[in-house]
């Protein structure tokens, strides 16, 4: 029941974040969505994810506020407003229809399949020695995934340093 309340709160906060005019208010509203997500992870029995989501949300808010402060501009509403909104909403309606058809094939909430994970849960402690099963999965059974994550983070840092570097010498004419 508390998950329903949290999800409805998240939807309302997301609508506020999308629709409000001030950019700083929008960023703070998306922070509310992130902290509610942290609480939802705690209710769903995922404490690792709750810690990570909490600290990542704080850092993301600092970076977003750093980017948007003093850079406000009013949104202009021009013609064809009705056409754009109706076409977007119809696209979302079609998306929801197909998603509703696909959701019927998934296992119900609270009864996962757990075909692979039974082996991990039985042999995790004896094979890896790690008590925390999530750490055993990400660093021993599925360590290739973590290696790919390290590559993506490295590429992202290189990309940011290349984009935001000081401009070099001008070209000689």
């Amino acid at each position: 029941m508390e998950l329903h309340i949290l999800l409805i709160f998240m939807i309302f906060a997301a609508i506020v974040a999308i629709e409000v005019k001030d950019l700083l208010s929008s960023v703070i509203a998306v922070g509310a969505v992130g902290f509610a997500l942290c609480l939802a992870f705690l209710i769903l029995k995922a404490p690792d994810l709750a810690i990570t989501q909490l600290v990542v949300e704080i850092l993301c808010l600092i970076i977003l506020i750093r980017a948007t402060i003093n850079k406000d501009l009013p949104l202009v509403i021009e013609g064809r407003w009705i056409f754009n909104t109706v076409s977007t909403l119809s696209f979302i309606a079609v998306f929801l229809l197909f998603a509703w058809l696909a959701l019927k094939e998934l296992p119900g909430f609270g009864e996962p399949i757990m075909a692979v994970v039974k082996k991990y849960l039985q042999e995790g402690v004896s094979k890896t020695g790690s008590v925390n099963i999530v750490t055993a999965v990400i660093l021993d059974f599925r360590a290739y995934d973590t290696l790919g994550e390290a590559t993506v983070l490295f590429t992202s840092v290189i990309g940011i340093m290349a984009i935001l570097r000081r401009p070099g010498r001008k070209k000689r004419e």
Partner: peptide, 8 residues
């Protein structure tokens, strides 16, 4: 303490 408690 990543392998003993939540975190990592």
């Amino acid at each position: 303490h990543g392998h003993l408690s939540p975190g990592g």
